[in-house]
Design a protein around this nucleic acid. Sequence first.
DNA 1: AGCACGCCGACT
DNA 2: GTCGGCGTGCTC
Length: 819
Amino acid sequence: MKQEVCRVAISGATYAFDKLYDYDIPPELAGAVVPGVRVLIPFGRGDRTREAIVVRMGCDPRAQYERKCILEVLDAEPVLDEHALSLAAHLCSTLFCTFYDCARAMLPAGLWFRKTERYELTKSTTEAMRQELAATYPVLQNFSKRKRAIAVKKLTELCGGALPEQQIHALVQQHILQQTSTFDRRMNDKTVTMHRLGMPYDDAMAMAERGRSSVRMDIVSVLAQEGRMSRTDLKYMTGASDSTIRAMVKNGMLAQWEEQTFRLPEQPELSERKEFVLSQAQQTVYNRMEPLLLSGHPEAALLFGVTGSGKTQVYMRLIDRTLQAGKSAIVLVPEIGLTPQLICKFMAQFGSCTAVLHSALSVGERYDSWKRIRSGEARVIVGTRSAVFAPAQNLGLIILDEEQDDAYKSENSPRYHARDVAKYRAMQENAFVLLGSATPAIETFYGAETGKYPVLHLRERYSGAALPRVTIADMRGTIQQGYISAIGPVLRQAMQRCFAEGHQCILFLNRRGAAKQVTCPSCGWTPACPSCSVSMTYHSVNHRLMCHYCGKSIPVRRTCPNCGSTHLKWEGTGTQRLETELQQMFPERKILRMDADTTSTKGSHAKLLEAFAEDQADILLGTQMVTKGLDFDRVTLVGIVDADQSLFAQDYRARERTFSLLTQVVGRAGRRQTQGQAIIQTYHPQDEVILDAARQDYERFYEAEIERRRMLQCPPIAQLVVLTAVGERERDVLAALVAVKQRMESLMAGAFSDFCYPILGPAPATVVRVQNRYRYHLTIRCPDNKRRRALLDGILREAGASRNFRGVTMYADVNPMQI
DNA sequence: AGCACGCCGACT
DNA sequence: GTCGGCGTGCTC
């Protein structure tokens, strides 16, 4: 009988040596080795055991090397089916990532195994030999013939904290000891480490004072106040490090235990399916989509519906039809935490055949969902970005809600866009991709315009509510009029009127966090993070300065360390400061603030929204978070405090993001009978983006923007590949990029003369230094084709293998969201 | 990455 | 003489 062979992708490979390796299949494993199962194989000179995935049967026919043998098969059934394997291969070649990067994105974490390395005496070692050798190698005292293998961790402990590596190495060489590895399933529930004081307050404080440790004293007083706190929060509040807390647990000052993390409430009552009636407009677009869904070919469409036009009902009807046709559907949402209302609707409608995939689930829960999906039991899958990989059986429909959202692009390897993956899957599995948005991504609309897929419009709000009346409030000159406030006179009056009518309002701050910077007016000093090239911002909750990139925090200073001035200035309109200001402006009104600070604990987001919906506050104040999928009957006024903030970022998508944001926020006003009002405060009332957003005129915005993209040669007109280098030594990082640029240019002059495009850079990344690592990049503006893949593949493999680039890692990102 | 092999300095 | 430094090249 012919010797069986297969080709595998190995775990833990870098891009430089990530390729298929051929292995023999021992006869006893013959039936068990099929494409998609994970196996253990010996790899490298040292034949260390590694995990691998069988990608296909057979081998490289021209192979002249000797093959090794598969050791073990880990799965009874493939974890990746044929579609998934070919999708992974496609992602590797287009996104320049390793096969295992893809596998990690596609499979639930609960499936991964933890490798435990153990040592044991070899069979041929006698007790006499062991005793004799123990004189020279004391580590042998821990072993006996009867005892099973000892895990490295245990052995380290037995040897007093340090593993005697030389001894072990020598003993392995002499075939006295051998290493074995086992892979244990880890399915631990997601838990959070909690702390409280481990002794009475006075004793703990005395201990901390004796050690003259201010951090410990802080920890003790914070815990005395709060009683109990998670380790994450404790670190946030006090700036303590893990090691400090661990030491305090060890000496008894703190107690520690594990607690289950919050989970989304399991299915809200499996109520009877609500029959809903589609409006005329909804029915019209549904009628156009149904044939696409049932065509049996790959299809796509853009559902372009203004905010409040009832896209969700159309989705529901489509999913219903998909299920009737015996197929399954995947619904992607940008961020599950922000759309609890949507999830509940789906759960209520499709009940037990729904599976939700998101990060708040425990590892075990996610694994269970994955199994339910793979078995075909769950046929409606609602989830975030990575749910696009869900092993849906007989896939018929993929919906991307709010398809323009940046959250659909992965920030780390594999750097995929869920929209592209959805299209690829649709292509393979003859499914229908529906992109839904009120402000489609420029590239999506471009695709529709160039005839790749149809656009279906929902131009009116469901139930005929009018779009809000939008006012642009010119903020120029308000300071001269005596208003130093962030709330200008126009918005202020509108708010007063709104409250007088007994309504609620939403105020939107156009920035990421509660940014509040500290500066010294006399010398210009500003606190900078010691490990990142950004300044630190003030957080009132813990009264500390924080770095938003690495999370480091330091206590607030009263004096400038540079010049000694005691008049430090607190700058910027963070949500926190605005809250204070609003409270003074409207003392009798209740304000809910929603930002990274107030929603740091899981579930607090939903609680805040609930409180607002139940009328417990008059003003909802927040950042990006208030823009998503909220639907409140009594909100008639929306104020955008600082519309300009995101307008002038230097990257090419800044205008698009601003337009989308403003349009979404404006759409939050008046979703029922009453016509709402939106007020956009700006210092640039003439800017086209502001004007177009105020008019809610997407097409006009699109025309201007696509023209800009054409001028700038940016996506979707041209494509960008950004090569980033990261390393601790700045000049090494730059040198590596200069070398790579030269190499590419010489290739483009020679073997790749048919693929010659300008290379820009090296340029510093937006934040040059993060956690003491410098990042620079090259930008190549070139089309996506075989030649590009070949060129970049070669470059990245060379760079990864080269010794000259030690300490510098390099990766490519295709059409990144931010440059 | 992680490991073995190989070729030069300061030790028993 | 040898133990061990880390530069180099390979991984089916």
